[in-house]
Design a protein around this nucleic acid. Structure first.
Ligand code: FES
Ligand code: FES
Lengths: 142, 142
DNA sequence: TCCTTTTAAGACTAATTTGTCTTAAATATA
DNA sequence: TATATTTAAGACAAATTAGTCTTAAAAGGA
């Protein structure tokens, strides 16, 4: 699959958080709504917090929230925070690093396709889905 | 990453095999040339053989070879043989199955991007790389 | 026929990813 | 200030993926 399971969870949670009007949402609410293990999700969201994509607040009324406007949070930034750069700089054949200087045989054909994928991840931001998520007409679990 | 490690190995090996003019190439030669563990590679290539992408021959002068013309072996068929359908029918959020009937919030935006990816995998076949691989000017390992 | 070479099959181990659990630290509020 | 609530951190366990090793089966050639 494209990304790790943790990364998919992160994207789902980010969509959910960004659709809630409250600044701060308890992780327990997210894990209940999305049916993701609370502890595992907590660990994943901590990474987003460390990458300053989310903020967090301890104690009663605590939880996590977006650390910047939804239109400034791209899918790419989430993938980068959870899965690292492998996806972005990796060679299709898993050779050391994709590079124009030392290309593998598929490099020329793969590059434009990857470019489109990156464009999608870069240009796609959380705000684009807020109304869809709020409408509750779209699957967020199972 | 896009595919499993085994799948990347399979693609590399398939490229190598298709570039050799001999019908049959010993797996030991492939594993030496591509610096992939012989036993692991053997297991992976067995899957391609079971999926009728390769043929194999035991004994002296044995090895593996393409089971059909290189232009009929797409990257998609290799990915399918090794990693299964997950990549092709999976939802970007890892929900049960991507479907137009029960879409997730990202479905509409993701679908065309995935379509391009699938087009690439479907339309890209081994014959397109034979001369590049033969020229030995392109990285096949490390 | 017998020996050697090579793939097939599958048990086994190692590494990585995923998931669980416990304890600590922070904070709102009574 | 004391208590309850919530995230942070990290040890630990389970599951999956990656990789190793041994033995069997097939096939060519002496
Ligand atoms: S070097 Fe392989 S895809 Fe660029
Ligand atoms: S249902 Fe999620 S991408 Fe189609």
């Amino acid at each position: 699959m494209l990304f790790s399971k943790a990364c998919h969870y992160a994207i789902r949670a980010a969509l959910y958080i960004s659709s809630r009007s409250e600044n701060i949402v308890p992780i327990r609410e997210i894990s209940d709504e999305l049916e993701i293990s609370f502890h595992f999700l907590t660990k994943i969201l901590q990474q987003l917090t460390r990458h300053h994509i989310l903020t967090s607040l301890k104690g009663p009324k605590g939880g996590v929230g977006l650390n910047k406007p939804a239109e400034e949070i791209s899918l790419k930034s989430i993938v980068l925070a959870i899965d690292g750069q492998d996806f972005f700089e990796g060679c299709l054949l898993r050779l050391d690093k994709c590079s124009d200087a030392h290309p593998c045989p598929i490099h020329d054909e793969w590059k434009p396709v990857r470019r489109q994928l990156l464009n999608f991840l870069e240009s796609t931001t959380l705000d684009q889905f807020q109304s869809k998520v709020k409408s509750k007409k779209f699957r967020m679990k199972v």
